[in-house]
């Protein structure tokens, strides 16, 4: 009886294994049979064009571009709202993670070590609240940041690495919308800092860079629209970003240079009044962001 049972088990295992083997080989045969058809299909089938997707830059790059254009450090222009626990919805957490990321980049590139540490901690808190705090532990990033606090170049590389592990985390967890939301917050904060500094020095290069930054606003809006279904709050964020674009598009300097956003040889300059009206709108949206 016992032997019969073992024999049965052995036969069953062999039968199953053989079936699987032939199933696997069978699919190869099927593939070969279909190759002829595939060649015909390739020629005749029209190309299916998918929705466009977006790859937005990092907050650090935006801060770096402004820095290269001569953006000086000015105290008090970064977010003074330093209580990350106040943000309760995911969209407000993500927007303000972006705000803190921009402030962190500005502080690091201007060697404001203490401020950089504060924004790093706030970014960590918000990331924890968003359930992605583990990215700070990858590659010992948080500790390396503290140890290299007096080395601007090392800190910039650590922030870039943090961005990389965050991007990968969000992609692996199918939360790409967070990337677009965070960048929206960071972009508005960077523009707010740059326009506040511009008010003081009226630097031409900074004026050009403020205008250049406006060329990516459409990409930000489109990236948010592509992810709109994933979070109900994105619709309101799109409206905020569109309201900035409407102000910019209506400026006479922009209307008179319709190709400025595409022509690589044109560096658009805005008048001081135009920068003021843009600054006012950006400040309004930024206040809304940090209040949550």
């Amino acid at each position: 009886m016992f032997l019969k049972k073992k024999n049965f088990t052995l036969k069953f295992v062999l039968f199953f294994a053989t079936s699987l083997f032939f199933a696997a080989c069978g699919s190869d045969t099927a593939k070969e049979e279909n190759i002829t058809t595939a060649a015909v299909d390739t020629v005749e089938a029209p190309v299916e064009s998918q929705e466009i997707s977006y790859s937005l830059p990092s907050p650090l790059q935006i801060a770096s571009i402004f820095k290269k254009s001569g953006l000086k450090y000015k105290g008090g222009v970064t977010s003074s709202f330093k209580d990350a626990t106040k943000y309760t919805t995911n969209i407000n957490k993500a927007i303000n993670l972006g705000v803190y990321s921009a402030d962190l980049s500005y502080a690091v590139l201007n060697k404001q070590n203490q401020e950089a540490m504060t924004y790093m901690k706030l970014s960590r808190q918000l990331s924890d609240n968003l359930g992605m705090g583990s990215v700070f532990d990858q590659g010992n990033l948080a500790n390396r940041f503290e140890k290299n606090i007096s080395n601007e170049d090392s800190l910039a590389y650590i922030i870039a690495e943090l961005q990389m592990v965050t991007d990968m985390y969000l992609d692996e967890n199918d939360q790409q919308q967070i990337t677009s939301i965070v960048f929206s917050g960071a972009w508005v904060e960077s523009m707010n800092i740059a326009s506040k500094v511009y008010e003081k020095g009226k630097d031409k290069a900074l004026n050009n860079k403020l205008a250049e930054q406006m060329t990516i606003l459409e990409s930000i809006i489109n990236a948010l629209k592509a992810e709109e279904k994933k979070d109900a709050g994105i619709t309101g964020l799109i409206a905020d970003m569109v309201s900035i674009k409407q102000i910019y598009d209506a400026l006479p300097s922009v209307k008179n240079n319709p190709n400025a956003s595409e022509d690589t040889e044109v560096e658009l300059s805005l008048t001081d009044d135009e920068v003021s009206s843009l600054t006012k709108k950006i400040e309004e949206i930024r206040e809304k962001f940090i209040k949550g």
């Binding site: 299909d41 390739t42 089938a45 029209p46 190309v47 299916e48 064009s49 998918q50 466009i52 997707s53 977006y54 790859s55 937005l56 830059p57 571009i65 250049e212 060329t215 990516i216 990409s219 489109n222 690589t264 560096e267």
Partner: peptide, 14 residues
């Protein structure tokens, strides 16, 4: 079964 075209927009700065 159909060929596809996927496009990713990458904004960059001069």
């Amino acid at each position: 079964k159909k060929p596809q075209q996927l496009e990713v927009e990458v904004p960059i700065f001069i």
